[in-house]
Amino acid sequence: MTRIDAKFEALKAQGQKAFVAYVMAGDPDYETSLEIVKGLPCAGVDIIELGLPFTDPMADGPTIQLAGQRALDGGMTLQKTLNLATEFRKTDQDTPIVLMGYYNPIYSRGVDKFLIDAKAAGIDGLIIVDLPPEEDEELCLPAQAAGLNFIRLATPTTDDKRLPRVMQNTSGFVYYVSITGITGSAEAEAGDVGPEVARIKAAGNLPVVVGFGINSPEKAAAITRVADGAVVGSAIVSRIGRGDTPAEVLAFVKTLADGAHSN
């Protein structure tokens, strides 16, 4: 059982939903990023999504793209991202970390070496947005064999024919992208999301967490009424980008977590 599996079991036993926060590793710099990441659990975050900076983030909107560019400009690398996770694990052995990004940096490092290093750093799961199920032998299957969850995205365009293939080797949870398009481009609507979550849950036995378009405590609360959890990324990253202090960022995250946990 991974930390992700254990977290969802514990939340279910408490009758709670999950709040997942996304931040870009190294944004705006390594030390500030580490301070924010270390503070996320006390702000109510159940699972941390740690963005891996990449030069061509095709699924990300302007807010996340700019965060990645700030991190890259500050010298952030895959190794430094793993270093950040290692530092976090010195004081927190319980909060799951999901590394979210693109395949190119992992491929460049070598899959076998990456998986050994990621496991050693305390990474629990991967979301690699540009690896479809047809490429499972590249990373998904080796990752699962190494004890890491491989979390797949489902979208409003994932029809009933495609969904079983998406679910086939997914573990940990399913990340439902509530809108079509890039991150930060629209707002999620619980009325639209609810039936889709039910459809995905019927196709497998995994928690369904909803992301994209959640930018307020009220929106987080609405989503967790119909899903197993809510992810907030762009709204948090935008606060970092405008220069909020770590304390201010974490105070905002706390309001989102309280909203998500209100059901």
Rank of each mutant, 00 (worst) to 15 (best):
T157W: 08
T158A: 04
A222D: 14
E135K: 14
T183H: 05
A120H: 08
L139M: 01
S185I: 04
V166G: 10
D27Q: 04
D56I: 09
P195T: 05
D192F: 15
I36R: 03
G110P: 02
G204Y: 08
D29G: 00
S33Q: 09
M24D: 10
S33K: 00
G211N: 08
L78V: 00
E138Y: 13
R3E: 03
G68A: 12
T170V: 11
T170P: 10
G15Y: 00
N169W: 05
H261N: 06
L126Q: 14
K113W: 08
V209C: 12
V23S: 13
I4K: 02
V237S: 06
Q16L: 11
I236T: 08
V193D: 00
I36F: 06
F88E: 12
E196Y: 13
V237L: 11
A59N: 08
F150E: 05
N104G: 05
A6E: 12
G15E: 03
L206E: 11
G101V: 04
T95H: 01
A235K: 07
A118Q: 07
R3V: 04
V23I: 15
V20F: 15
A251V: 06
R242W: 15
G172I: 09
V210F: 07
V166S: 11
D94R: 09
P207F: 06
A247C: 11
I182R: 13
C140V: 04
L115R: 00
K80Y: 06
A118R: 01
G172F: 12
K17L: 01
T180C: 09
A85I: 10
T157V: 10
E196R: 15
H261K: 04
G191R: 12
I151S: 03
E248D: 04
D159Y: 13
T2I: 09
L256V: 04
F114C: 05
A85P: 01
L66Q: 15
S216R: 14
V249M: 11
F8N: 09
E187V: 09
E35H: 14
R242L: 12
V45K: 01
L115W: 07
G61A: 01
E248Y: 04
E187N: 13
K201S: 06
G110E: 06
V20D: 12
A251I: 12
